[in-house]
Amino acid sequence: MTSTTVTTAEKPSSRISGRTILIALLVAIGIAIVYYYIVDPTATTSVLAGTIRQATPLILGALCGLIGERSGIINIGIEGQMLMAAFVAFMVNVALGPIMPLGLALFLGVVSGILVGALMGGFLAWMSVTLKLDQIIGGTVINILALGLTSYFYVIGLTTRGKLPTFALGPLADIPLIGPVLFNRSPIQYLAIILVFVVQFALFRTVWGLRTRSVGEHPSAADTVGISVKMTRYMNVIIAGCFAGLAGAYLTLESVGTFERGMTNGRGFIALAVMIFGRWTPLGSWGAALLFGFATALKTQLDFMGLNVPPQLTGSMPYILTIVVLAGFAGRARPPAAVGQPYESE
């Protein structure tokens, strides 16, 4: 008897065309940047540097979101994790600043921010994995908790004695345009870019990544080959919390230099939009984060140039972009299949 297997085809062709579009887009962006750089080098450099700055907390938040969601846990508490970490990192720095060298105090501030993020990740994991609470409610608990605690303990008028400084990477920083934009940055900005590639590699090329994705897509398949769904989810949400914590520390110790009530200002939620727009991949999310960062940086530049555009309009650009992205792409992008569902082993 002849074989009667049925084959499905036509998938690769659509992938190739997607890649072509991406390359065309990158080339177009490159040409636009060079053109504006020739027209107005100062403004272009400052917008692009601003883009990298603004994208940093967004990509860190998005990495937090996608590490959790790839293992099946929705995290809408990124905002709260960031805020709490921003606050604790700031307070630790304020407390330690007078008794030790500034660099060490800043370093310990960042570390404590990361730990607080991880701790809140652990709390979210406990609510969603052990208590099997609705994950949206779990995230909301974290957001409200963070807003309440930080507002309550916040003391007006505290400042640090300094922020994390920028480091020029030797001769690389002297390249026109690219130098100031990419190679004259502060530590967490460098780290965020490195982490994008690390997480991308880890997710698709390591044992951890394979197991994480299996748990997020088909937990019982992972369970039947002896992978602990609970352990994987706990571990991932805690690791993810470190990223949100780093983003929080960035806001107070590297970007602003002080703490304000509700200073995350929706960045945790925009990070989720960034993650979805990036289709749950680190590289894609980085692209999306740069787009959102660009919208914010452009606003700052437009305000600065004193153009006759109402600031409310420019200021709302990142949020309008969020709505457009979520309305246009959220439906089409495919989230991990088991996201949001507590796992009941047999």
């Binding site: 394979l210 299996s214 897509e217 398949a221 080959v225 299949a337």
Partner: peptide
């Protein structure tokens, strides 16, 4: 079937005993 639909055959086979 306990297979992860979005992964390749080889990835599915080695999952858990990579």
């Amino acid at each position: 079937f306990q297979l992860v639909p979005v992964m390749s055959v080889a990835e599915n086979v080695m999952l858990g005993s990579e």
